[in-house]
Design a protein around this nucleic acid. Structure first.
Lengths: 144, 144
DNA sequence: ATTTTCTTAATAATCGTTATCATATATAAT
DNA sequence: ATTATATATGATAACGATTATTAAGAAAAT
């Protein structure tokens, strides 16, 4: 399924639940589905500002919350570098994060299900969410 | 090695590097080594206040930074629930976090080295740090 | 003892995020 | 198409955890 299809589907599903699709919301959603870069709220805001000069950062945050409540965006909380958002893979998955250029990429899937099963057995927890972050230097930043 | 030994050793090592061991610093370090509860800065502060009524929260933060720079405390950043600190196992390791009572426990070691090796190969990153968090309900909170 | 250097306590500043609220607008009903 | 009205927007204030600032205090060096 390509980006356009995903966009249409997501918008339709939101509409069905009674959510109004404003130009601002549409723009934020389209932006999120257009990139693998895990943008921050600020980056979404400044990225859209040229085309939506009256857009408010508050609206970006509100749209992100809306999508989060519908499980349509993954929020990665970082206290140092601010939160980042993934609209393409809005489910928990591992990330590799470059501490120099702050690039975030998705490593090919590890067997997270097996790991979670093990932790669950060892701790007695019912695991409902996870966060697997690997910090280091990306290939490009190793050269510089 | 018990807590008292660890405390003496850590204090000696800090002293050797020219760090002054003030009563406040000693108290924060002793508090951190006395618990597996992964306390917040605020909890350390309020925990010590009865015995150190003039203690400042800023001093707690500064001491935590000092220990972090010496790799003697592990800082777990959470933007929602605030940062938590682990002075007993100050190296990266997995955590199981109860989303209801906010308890944090250490699951018996997974083979994190193998996982990191795999991520490193797949991404080309040099991995220098990691954060493996598993969120859910602890055994007690499943009952309530 | 005096000087220098480091540390503390109190509090102001910071910054990403959230809340507030008057105005604007998407949608449904007419 | 117009209108009604519930909801969303934009501007900005408030928030809260952390960090910075700075005058006063304590430890070490001379």
């Amino acid at each position: 399924m390509d980006t356009q299809e995903k966009l249409a589907e997501l918008v339709a599903s939101l509409k069905k639940e009674g959510t109004r699709i404003t130009p601002q919301r549409y723009a934020v959603i389209a932006f999120l589905l257009s990139t693998d870069s895990h943008p921050s709220a600020e980056e979404i805001y400044t990225g859209l500002l040229p085309q939506y000069p009256t857009l408010s950062l508050a609206t970006v945050y509100k749209t992100l919350h809306l999508l989060k409540s519908e499980q349509e965006v993954l929020e990665l909380e970082f206290s140092e570098m601010g939160n980042r958002y993934d609209g393409r893979k809005p489910w928990p998955h591992p990330h590799a994060i470059c501490t120099r250029c702050r690039k975030i990429i998705d490593p090919p899937m590890l067997d997270t299900a097996a790991i979670i099963e093990e932790v669950s057995k060892e701790t007695g927890f019912v695991i409902t969410n996870h966060r697997l972050d690997f910090f280091g230097l990306c290939a490009e930043c190793q050269k510089g």
